[in-house]
């Protein structure tokens, strides 16, 4: 008699926890500026998933500098999907622990980058220092804000965009290195992530110009008002491709491969592309891109593969220990 009294609550409890465990949970480990994008996108995908499969879904987010986030996944952060700032950081997850296949970038369309962005300048209203193009950034007395390429994905795109500009204009790698060296001489603060850099420029009011992700610059305009800041498009920039991938090891273990893949694929859907565009990421889909053409001005963009021979090479030459970026700081 007594035992039965005890048994019922235990069974009920077991069932309850069993049911709770059934509601699927995804963890999206992402980089700094995508907080707002994935807050919107997660809402949309949860509704979409409920409508198509009837399953309840919880999606957790984690944001930080791209390198820091990849380091977390390597050390065992249970990410079902990663949405990072550049391919090199996902490559690192492959290299250190083989948590996904080497050819991860071929599994989804467009190099696994559902949206792109580029690198632009954010200046204070009225552009008091008259900044028009990259050349103005190396002038004496101009203070430039950009994060640390060692830890920030965005910062690496910034660096490479400046390099590409100088190389195109002056032709040689030496000239490009001299240009980038001069540029970093004008940098008073190196934050560890893109968002920290924006905060420094916008809230701390340090610097005359911030080199920034286009989406980050547009978000700053939206949050703080067009009466305070302006965006300047340089004559040449880089096509920044922030890739996404399922972490096979985690997804297999948690049994979330299907939903994780669907989650990433949904980024390519009309709704996913719309959400990306509304959060100032350039959509891949031509129709959606056409619809938001007025938001995203056209400019000359070089690619990482065309200009630098891919991320692996760029990473090794420029950002590895003893690479060109280290040289720049040691000779400063």
């Amino acid at each position: 008699m007594k035992l039965r009294h005890l048994l019922f609550p235990i069974i009920a409890l077991t069932l309850a926890t069993g049911a709770a465990a059934k509601s699927t949970e995804l963890l999206n480990v992402s980089y700094d500026p995508t907080r707002e994008l994935y807050v919107d996108f997660n809402k949309a995908f949860i509704a979409h998933w409920k409508a198509t499969t009837g399953e309840d879904l919880t999606i957790k987010q984690s944001h930080g500098g791209s390198g820091k986030q990849a380091r977390g996944v390597i050390d065992g952060l249970q990410a079902d999907v990663v949405t990072l700032a550049l391919a090199a950081d996902i490559d690192a997850i492959y290299e250190h622990g083989k948590q996904l296949p080497q050819d991860w970038q071929k599994r989804l369309p467009d190099n696994s980058t559902p949206y792109t962005s580029t690198i632009v300048f954010l200046v204070r209203k009225g552009n008091p220092k008259g900044i028009k193009d990259w050349d103005d950034l190396v002038k004496p007395g101009v203070s430039v804000i950009t994060p640390n390429p060692k830890t920030s994905g965005g910062a690496r795109w910034n660096y490479l965009a400046a390099w590409a500009y100088a190389k195109h204009k002056q032709g040689t790698d030496q000239a490009a290195q001299a240009f980038v060296t001069a540029l970093y001489k004008n940098v008073p603060v190196l934050d560890s992530g893109a968002r920290g850099s924006t905060t420094t420029f916008v809230q701390r009011e340090i610097g005359d110009v911030a080199i920034s992700w286009e989406n980050e610059a547009m978000l700053a305009l939206k949050e703080f008002g067009r009466e305070k800041f302006e965006i300047i498009m340089p004559s040449l920039s880089i096509l920044a491709e922030p890739p996404v991938a399922v972490i096979d090891r985690v997804a297999k273990k948690k049994g979330t491969t299907a939903v994780a893949t669907a989650y990433l694929e949904y980024l390519y859907s009309d709704e996913g592309q719309e959400i990306a565009a509304r959060n100032f990421y350039r959509p891949r889909k031509p129709e959606i891109a056409a619809k938001y053409a007025s938001t995203f001005p056209k400019l000359e963009l070089v690619t990482i593969d065309g200009e630098f021979g891919g991320w692996a090479k760029a990473q090794k030459t420029h950002f590895a220990d003893g690479g060109i970026f280290d040289e720049i700081y040691q000779n400063k």
């Binding site: 500098g65 390198g67 820091k68 380091r71 640390n148 060692k150 830890t151 940098v187 190196l190 220990d321």
Partner: peptide, 26 residues
């Protein structure tokens, strides 16, 4: 880390170098 500009060679303290190395998978 909040008050420093965290510039290599100039305003980077040793614990920050450790964190930076870690974030480069070193």
């Amino acid at each position: 880390v909040f008050i420093s500009s965290n510039m290599p060679m100039h305003t980077e303290i040793t614990p920050l170098v450790i964190i930076t190395k870690l974030e480069q998978y070193d």
